[in-house]
Nucleic acid binder design. Structure first.
Lengths: 154, 154
DNA sequence: TTTAATCCCAAGCATTTCGCTTGGTTATCC
DNA sequence: GGATAACCAAGCGAAATGCTTGGGATTAAA
């Protein structure tokens, strides 16, 4: 039935996926001073240099602060409950729109369809936005605690 | 502030975008016999050969029927209210999952994060699914009528 | 004051994916 | 039997992805 195995679409790139995980790591240790790129990269077993690029973006967008030199590292620019998943993903990935037709209102919307499809893309985008803007890093930290407690009880 | 203009992510490919538009065209003229690829392609001003590939996929997934030979063409395999946007997009694009971590449960979920991020991807996916599975081609046709009536009254 | 640790920055680059195009074959109506 | 269509498989240039490379500049600790 599934025939051809196509790549899954509507997929985040590694930027968003690695980046959110990394930010969550920082949230877990928030308040304990800066954490070095190396530590975060090691923990997620991914390239230090690549993660650096993501952190650079996140910093430029005001989600991270950094401390240079030995003993330096990165830290959240504000409290975990003031940073949403949406802010992180949009910083790393750009707009969460299924079609450009939404953002650029430019488009070849032909006469006959009068862009009903556009309505669909808007509904999808709105529903994604609603989810990602409602989850903070703090929420994730709490969910994590719950999951760990759950494990202990087994 | 926006600095680098990154490509928008979580975006559908042309397959999904063209495909849904084309299916909507067929829905508009449902019950009037088969419509040729050429006509649909012309109306959307896109490549006949490319659209053919999309239709081939949609047919294989049971969303379209075809009639070969002269006067032939394509038609919806069932009533517009029995075909959802979700069925179309999944046929053309694959699963609507922001991360493989959801589908393949295989993943490098490290100890410390215990995959809280996975929860986020699941929430995103669920919310997308809810939207696209709740919209039928029939809904789109009706929305289209409303929009056209709105225009006339201006 | 050196040295090691760290952030910072720009460029390059192999691979994969996307968005088609090309060039046919087969079926059906007139 | 000729025109009109659906069917099918392969190829292919351009762009994006997911990194790597190779340097700096800044600072804490020795």
């Amino acid at each position: 039935m599934l025939g051809i195995k196509r790549g899954e679409i509507m997929k985040l790139s590694t930027r968003g996926r690695y980046g959110l995980k990394a930010m969550f790591q920082l949230a877990l240790h928030h308040g304990e001073g800066p954490i070095s790129l190396k530590i975060v990269a090691d923990k997620q077993s991914l390239s230090e240099n690549y993660l650096e690029q993501l952190f650079s973006t996140l910093k430029k967008d005001g989600l991270l602060d950094s401390v240079r030199g030995a003993q330096g590292g990165y830290l959240l620019s504000r409290d975990p409950n003031e940073i949403t998943v949406g802010q992180i993903l949009r910083s790393l990935e750009g707009n969460m729109a299924p079609s450009d037709c939404i953002v650029d209102n430019e488009f070849g919307c032909s006469r006959e369809d009068s862009c009903v499809t556009r309505l669909v893309w808007i509904k999808i985008k709105d529903s994604i936005d609603e989810v990602i803007d409602s989850i903070t890093l703090q929420d994730m930290v709490e969910d994590d605690k719950k999951m760990k407690n759950g494990e202990e009880k087994q």
